[in-house]
């Protein structure tokens, strides 16, 4: 199978994405290498086939956004909204990720080897996120389903207004968001953390993680909840 190279210093982003949406889908190419991304936005968005895209350099906003089945690897850092609304497949950032990483992801796996900025995993809807470093404030805000493994620390208001997503944190949590609590880890939780770390290729002892989940006290209107909504 072929490995095709797109040099974004020579070729437009439009050509790259058009190729990934059409030709790559025909199955003739299983790996696409992207050179000189130079922080371009919207690299490899909306993929819908099991192709591998290796980006050598830094990506701008929404790299690998809305991904289905593809594997997008960024050998550099990624801008806002990396892997946003992904449905399946893998997006792997070898460097750092900016704000809103994995926002609203419905499925698939997002791996960030370094730190992630604000609102990592905001509005998460079933995807899995593994962050090798720390996450910024308001991460997992209103996260509805899916799992986040945070190997470093978490900023302020972690998991604010969380629904059914579950967060595993190894380091310190600066502050908990409304309606979240730390819960005991079960065997299933240890197994889940071990599995996600293995998939992400990051080594830690699952025993070092704590579980954060929703208290489920804000699911219904309640006048006595002192407007914590």
């Amino acid at each position: 199978m072929e490995n095709l190279t797109f040099d974004l210093a020579q070729t437009s982003l439009r050509e790259l994405n058009q190729f990934l949406h059409n030709d790559a889908k025909k199955g003739e190419v299983d790996k696409v290498t992207v050179l000189n991304p130079d922080g371009a936005h919207n690299i490899a968005v909306g993929l819908d086939c099991p192709v591998t895209v290796e980006v050598h350099g830094h990506a701008g906003y929404y790299a690998g956004g809305m991904n289905k089945t593809a594997r997008v690897v960024i050998h550099g850092s990624a801008g806002t909204g990396v892997g946003e609304n992904m449905m399946s497949g893998v997006v792997h950032v070898k460097g750092f990720a900016s704000n809103g990483a994995g926002a609203s992801a419905h499925g698939g796996l997002l791996v960030i080897d370094g730190d992630a900025g604000l609102r990592c995993g905001i509005s998460l809807k079933g995807g899995d996120i593994v962050v090798g470093g720390s996450v910024g404030s308001f991460s997992a805000f209103m996260a509805q389903a899916g799992r986040m493994v945070i190997c470093g620390d978490a900023g302020d208001a972690l998991g604010d207004s969380l629904y059914e997503a579950v967060l595993y944190v190894r380091g310190n949590i600066k502050s908990m968001g409304a309606d979240t609590q730390i819960e005991p880890m079960s065997d299933a939780d240890y197994a889940a953390v071990a599995d996600l770390l293995r998939q992400a290729g990051i080594e830690h002892n699952p025993k070092e993680f704590k579980r954060v989940a929703s208290k489920r006290e804000l699911y219904y209107w309640n006048a006595d909840a002192n407007q914590e909504y």
């Binding site: 982003l13 439009r14 994405n17 058009q18 949406h21 936005h41 919207n42 968005v45 909306g46 701008g60 906003y61 929404y62 956004g65 809305m66 806002t80």
Partner: peptide, 14 residues
């Protein structure tokens, strides 16, 4: 940011 989001939707739908 919205400009980039719109560009994402355009790229996404060719």
């Amino acid at each position: 940011d919205l400009a980039i989001k719109i560009q994402e939707l355009r790229e996404m739908t060719d």
